[in-house]
Write a protein that binds this DNA or RNA. Structure first.
Lengths: 210, 210
DNA sequence: GTCTATACCTAGATAGAC
DNA sequence: GTCTATCTAGGTATAGAC
């Protein structure tokens, strides 16, 4: 009985925890938060229901971890694109396009993160992440205004509006089983970027890109 | 024992049901769906918990009724404004302004209807009402395009974007206890209408109105 | 450390008295 | 028709064997 766990033990534990979070994410994407019981999640991860509590103190804690993990990834991707190359307006449309495309590729997960009914704890978490999106968008809007590419405006309002607008436009396609296959996705992305440009007050579409 | 209830009886029942729905709405606005237990709602309506089931077959049915009632009112008000006088762009900004002002006047209820975590049944209901908003907005956007006031665009996407944008912009103020007192509300409304105009691509602000 | 079996708790729903 | 008291189900969390 060692007083400290060996590195190998820690690694195994960590791996099991990872697997649990991954599988829970999968289950949530498939059946939603409401039906993702501890039993179902544990079964998916190949462990017993009771063993979940070796890794998380409560179901809510696991749910929060799942949400943070997945939402964090999206926020990071968005952040990278928004801080990338090109003028602010280009980056904004690129960001929206990438965000939307990723959502449409994993509709179940995106729906769970963006809109699906969930416990209060997750509601709070969602609100926090939406604020993070607000900040990311607001920063770029301010840059655009400073560069004279966008008219004067309250960047926070525009950023919140963009967040809500993109989410709302996506929810319907995400809800319908086959969110739209081939060209429908391209059309939707084009309309989304056009809306983004209008919403910020950009005068000329800069990149008519894919 | 009459085979049919007398008109007086029916009226009394109907009144009790009304009172129950009203009080349930009140409770939901105050404590949210999660904490609006059958017991709490019944207490507010001055009846016993068991008696709730004289009027509704289940808690979910009552919740849906509460949601439909309240959301229906807002949709009607919005519809009236959008179908009122003036050019399409004016009506659009008026609609957004009225919707937002009403929400800010009843923050608890608005938050419950727009964003608060709720059971799956209500999630579906919410989605349905958001579609109703989409349609209302889309119609006016199409009119605006037809009148040459707005550039060509997919009205459904713009309408969904407006719905999401307005909701998202409102959620933060609605969440904070004193949503903003005096001039803050006016500023927010002004920014919202400006955003609405940009989002639809309207070139010149038509009514700088209150 | 992981499983099996079970305790427990909350909240919705019901039965029967008045 | 309404209340009180009770039942029940479902799912989280835990105890103890292996």
């Amino acid at each position: 009985m060692a007083y400290r766990k060996t590195p190998a033990e820690l690694e195994r534990l960590e791996a099991a925890r990872e697997r649990l979070v991954d599988q829970a994410t999968q289950v949530v994407a498939e059946v939603g938060w409401a039906n993702a019981s501890v039993t179902a999640v544990a079964a998916a991860a190949g462990i017993a229901a009771g063993s979940v509590y070796q890794h998380f103190p409560s179901k809510a804690a696991l749910a929060v971890e799942v949400f943070r993990r997945a939402s964090g990834r999206e926020a990071e991707v968005l952040s990278e694109v928004l801080h990338g190359d090109g003028d602010p307006v280009e980056r904004l449309t690129d960001g929206v396009r990438v965000f939307a495309r990723r959502a449409l590729e994993r509709p179940g997960l995106a729906y769970a993160l963006l809109a699906a009914p969930a416990e209060p704890a997750l509601g709070a978490e969602r609100l926090e992440f939406r604020r993070r999106y607000h900040e990311l968008f607001a920063e770029v809007v301010r840059e655009g205004t400073a560069a004279g590419l966008l008219p004067p405006q309250d960047a926070r309002v525009t950023a919140a509006a963009l967040t809500g607008a993109v989410g709302e436009v996506l929810v319907d396609p995400l809800g319908t089983p086959a969110g739209g296959s081939d060209g429908a996705v391209a059309d939707l992305l084009a309309e989304l970027t056009a809306m983004t440009l209008r919403c910020t007050g950009a005068q000329h579409p800069t990149t008519p890109g894919v």
